[in-house]
Design a protein around this nucleic acid. Structure first.
Length: 406
RNA sequence: GCGUCGGUGGUAGAGUGGUCAAUUACACUUGGCUGUAAACCAAGCGGCUUCGGCCUACGGAGGUUCGAAUCCUCCCCGGCGCA
């Protein structure tokens, strides 16, 4: 038996939506589930003792960030979960996204060495002059990625093997293969190239994982599919990754609104090509509409920074849409953030109070806001799960969206 | 009373003859945030506008000048010093 596997409890008849249980060595995750982001081994501002009260079943931390600072401490502290004093399931991301976001994704230069560069096994092939530009560069070749730290400009290199090794040391129950993330707006040839490289890296990631017999027993590895907005690439990627023997599948890419309103939809085309019992994770999918769309297409888990980043910046989810709590209109609004919400912020505090905390720049404001947002998304998934179990997913989705969109 | 320094947009504080509706910061108003370089970023922030400008503004009133937030005179207000 693999350390990670999904059992489907109920398949929705009208769509691919499903309710399931994702089994991990540290307990079960009831799906669909939302997974908050704990980049540097903390959900910004929220200690692990609070996780359960926010409906959290797990979280996802980041290989890139923890590699740059804290890896040894995490490892010697007993691994990510123990280090954080969290007994439940844990997940790590591979660092592939950072190559993207610190490189081309932010409009900065992302260089790619072409075939004419001879690649020797085990030898880094970065151009030191190019890569020395502080935190601005990722140089991709077929072997891996050379990049500069955003913290101090120092030069580093990730390969699939290296990412897997780091993730073994972090010790999360679930981790991701190293991939090349693209923007939906990247052209076909670029997407195809990135997809093929991601496939090669997936194979190497998987092999590196299997070679560590101890880790392979305790940790599950998800492969990531790419392909941007091109359905044929997406399907090909899903079939390829889906057949490799991964424990789960990650929808790769970046689904920010700046890339248009439909960047997620092409990624969802992958779902039909995957083995039916393979758990599927939506990487960086975190707006309520997108989560529901993902669930409808069969996505089991979602991670995203939206609840914490938006929350810290004053953006709050409510059943009637998003609000900006620092706005003047909430100064004397003595009602809860969201009517009927049972999160710790709503049960104890008013909009006026949290507005006040933001205006006075008190740290408690962003903390309460993050807690509320996390609860909002975990409970959205929980309600969707219940609706699926009751055979009423479509009704739930429609009524939620009708109210949410005002 | 004498002397002296100073009074600039919500606040602090630049500017010290034209390039000034006035740098900057904060405040304020609003937007944005989708595998976290994000407790962040962006725009706006005198009035009107046919978007080319026009009007009103740098304590008050005069004056010098082609032109004044900037120079001069007087007045008002405040800080400091001496009586």
């Amino acid at each position: 038996m693999r350390p990670i596997y999904l059992t489907v409890e109920k398949q929705n008849p009208g769509s691919r939506a499903r309710a399931g249980v994702l089994h991990t060595p540290h307990g079960n995750i009831l799906t669909p589930a939302f997974v908050p982001v704990a980049t540097k081994a903390d959900v910004k501002g929220i200690e692990s003792a609070k996780f359960e009260s926010l409906g959290m079943q797990t979280f996802i931390s980041n290989t890139y960030h923890l590699y740059l600072s804290g890896l040894d401490a995490v490892e010697q502290g007993g691994g990510l979960g123990k280090f954080m004093n969290w007994n439940g399931p844990t997940i790590t991301d591979s660092g592939g996204f950072q190559v993207f976001s610190l490189g081309s994704g932010f409009g900065k230069k992302l260089s790619k060495f072409s075939g004419e560069v001879a690649v020797e096994e085990g030898v880094s092939i970065f151009d030191e002059d190019l890569a020395s530009s502080h935190g601005k560069l990722a140089i991709i070749d077929d072997e891996g990625v050379s990049f500069t730290s955003h913290l101090d400009g120092s030069l580093h290199r990730f390969t699939p093997e290296r990412s897997v090794e780091i993730q073994h040391r972090l010790g999360a129950d679930i981790f991701f293969a190293f991939d090349q993330c693209t923007a939906p707006t990247d052209p076909y040839e670029f997407q195809k190239d990135a997809m093929e490289r991601t496939h090669a890296w997936a194979k190497r990631s998987l092999r590196a994982h299997r070679q560590n017999l101890d880790a392979d027993k305790k940790q599950g590895i998800y492969g990531i599919g790419q392909g941007g907005q091109f359905d044929d690439l997406r399907r090909e990627s899903a079939r390829t990754i889906g057949d490799m023997g991964f424990d789960g599948f990650g929808l790769g890419g970046s689904f920010s609104k700046k890339y248009g309103d439909h960047s997620l939809e092409s990624a969802l085309a992958m779902l039909t090509e995957l083995p039916s019992d393979m758990p599927v994770h939506g990487l960086g999918v975190g707006e309520p509409e997108d989560i529901l769309l993902g669930i409808e297409h069969g996505v089991d888990t979602f991670d995203c920074v939206t609840p914490t980043r938006n929350g810290r910046n004053g953006g709050l989810y409510t059943s009637r849409g998003k609000i900006q709590i620092p706005n003047a209109q909430y100064q004397y609004d003595y009602t809860p953030l969201d009517e009927g919400c049972e999160c710790p912020a709503c049960t104890n505090h008013t909009r006026a109070y949290i507005h006040h905390l933001f205006r006075t720049r008190e740290i408690l404001g962003p903390i309460l806001a993050s807690m509320h947002n996390i609860y909002f998304l975990t409970s959205l998934c929980k309600k969707a799960r219940e609706a699926i179990l009751n055979g009423q997913f479509e009704q739930f989705k429609d009524s939620f969206l009708e109210k949410y969109r005002n």
